[in-house]
Design a protein around this nucleic acid. Structure first.
Length: 424
RNA sequence: GGAGGGGUGGCUGAGCGGCCGAAAGCGCUGGUCUUGAAAACCAGAGUUCGGGUAACCGGACCGUGGGUUCAAAUCCCACCCCCUCCGCCA
């Protein structure tokens, strides 16, 4: 989001630069609201000043045993006027604020223009797809045959887009979580965090899920809590309304959490398998950076996510999302896509974004610069990685002609030494 | 869930409804002193909104939101959070 001050000063420039990303914004209404807020502020401040002075006069008159009734009546009337003006100011400010909260972030200059995933730009590829001597099976067929995935019973106890993992499947999921966290905390310098899986409205607004995307979230009926759609929400909001000393920056957190998404509007997409679930596990990387370092940090962060796939020897590519495919809050996003042989294509397994000061302004995340001034930090995050999709990639890429699955060597210590998953 | 106590500046902690953005101590920053450091002494220092090129001026902020009053950190109400005890509970 933009603060109202810079919106007022740069409204036309912001509107131009947003282009089609800003097509939902009623710019003229917003401009009028911001200007009204400013003039109302001037008025209210003046009236309050008068009231303060008047009240001091009353105090003085009373001290000097002078009659104060006239002054008091005058101040009473002034107070009533202030009340009215303040109410108007408050509602004007709220409306302006609400509009500002619905404006998406400005894409960075290096982001390719475009309207859909077809316009994304491939940055690099790593590894090469295994040449199968047989037709590779989809992970859901493999998993069900191996007795480690159970979608039918998941539907019975919960519904569509849920899965039950059992036996070595459950063990593999847990192994992946531990492997990823260990990698990021010991080799990449992240501090591990285990946050709440439910957050309040303020946190959701801070990272940009609210107010615009409430329909995508699971919400508790009797409390104003939401299930987190990603660890980004609780972890980024860890520093909400704080001013961080310069010497603590950069701050890097790695967090495992389940993620909950309603997937409204995705009917018919990826209906089978683990790719698109209402609940999935993810290890998330979150970085707080000085503004001048944030794009360097984005490259690092992306590299840390890629390292997981390299360790697992899974082929992937990195793409830069175009302006039309980027999320609401991001200034620049790299997607990492893993190779899925059964679909003969790359599928997203990580999304690494620089939000610049967009989230920091919403959440009040600031730091004390060396010159003593406060400034907003830049926030970044990336999946490191989506665990369910990683499990999918392992099942499909490591499958054998007999339907068993080899366990990648780096995971074996986490699997009690097991080397393969076979039908038991 | 029941009973009681409490939420004030980086921290500790004062604050008769009016001259309180808020004492004091600690910590912090600059200076004096010192070969250097410590100590001592002096000075400075919150966040935010608006006006102004600027110096500066004005408003708001004492958990949050309402209310009473000419005037609220101080009084009233609701909510949130923390602590103690009881109940329940992994």
């Amino acid at each position: 989001m933009y603060d109202l001050r810079s919106l007022r000063d740069n409204l036309d420039a912001i509107k131009d630069q947003l282009g089609s990303r800003g097509r939902d914004v009623a710019w003229d209404d917003l401009r009028a609201l911001i200007e009204a807020r400013r003039s109302l502020t001037v008025m209210v401040d003046g009236l309050r000043h008068e009231l303060k002075k008047g009240s001091e006069d009353v105090a003085r008159l009373k001290r000097e045993k002078q009659p104060a009734d006239a002054a008091m009546a005058q101040m009473k009337a002034l107070g009533d006027r202030i009340q009215v003006a303040e109410d108007t100011l408050r509602s004007t400010e709220e409306r302006a604020q609400d509009m500002a909260l619905r404006i998406p972030n400005l894409p960075h200059g290096s982001v390719p223009a475009g309207k859909d995933p077809a316009d994304n730009q491939e940055v690099r590829q790593w590894g090469s797809a295994h040449a199968f001597t047989f037709t590779p099976q989809a992970h859901w067929d493999l998993g069900e045959a191996l007795g480690i995935l159970d979608f039918e019973r998941a539907a019975k106890i919960a519904g569509a887009r849920f899965a039950v993992l059992t036996g070595l499947g459950a063990r593999l999921e847990r192994a992946l979580i531990n492997f990823m966290l260990d990698l990021h905390t010991t080799r990449h310098g992240y501090r591990e965090v285990l946050p709440p899986f439910m957050v309040n409205r303020a946190a959701m607004t801070g990272t940009g899920q609210l107010p615009k995307f409430e329909d995508d979230l699971f919400k508790l009926r009797d409390d104003d809590y939401f299930l987190i759609p990603t660890a980004e929400v609780p972890v980024t909001n860890l520093l909400r309304e704080e001013i961080v000393p310069d010497d603590r920056i950069p701050i890097r957190y790695a967090a495992y959490t389940p993620c909950f998404r309603r997937e409204a509007g995705s009917y018919g997409k990826d209906t089978r398998g683990l790719i698109r679930q209402h609940q999935f596990n993810k290890v998330e990387l979150v970085v707080f950076s000085r503004p001048e370092d944030s794009y360097q940090e984005l490259e690092r962060l992306t590299g840390h996510a890629e390292a997981v796939l390299q360790e697992l020897a899974l082929p992937y590519r990195v793409v830069t999302l175009c302006t039309g495919d980027m999320g609401f809050s991001a200034a620049k996003t790299y997607d990492i896509e893993v190779w899925l042989p059964s679909q003969n294509t790359f599928r997203e397994i990580s999304s690494c974004s620089n939000f610049e000061a967009f989230q920091a302004r919403r959440a009040g995340i600031r730091y004390r610069r060396k010159d003593g001034k406060t400034d907003f930090l830049h926030t970044l995050n990336g999946s490191g990685l989506a665990v369910g999709r990683t499990l999918v990639a392992i099942l499909e890429n490591y499958q054998q002609p007999d339907g068993s699955v080899t366990i990648p060597p780096v995971l074996r210590p986490y699997m009690g030494g097991a080397e393969r998953i076979a039908k038991s």
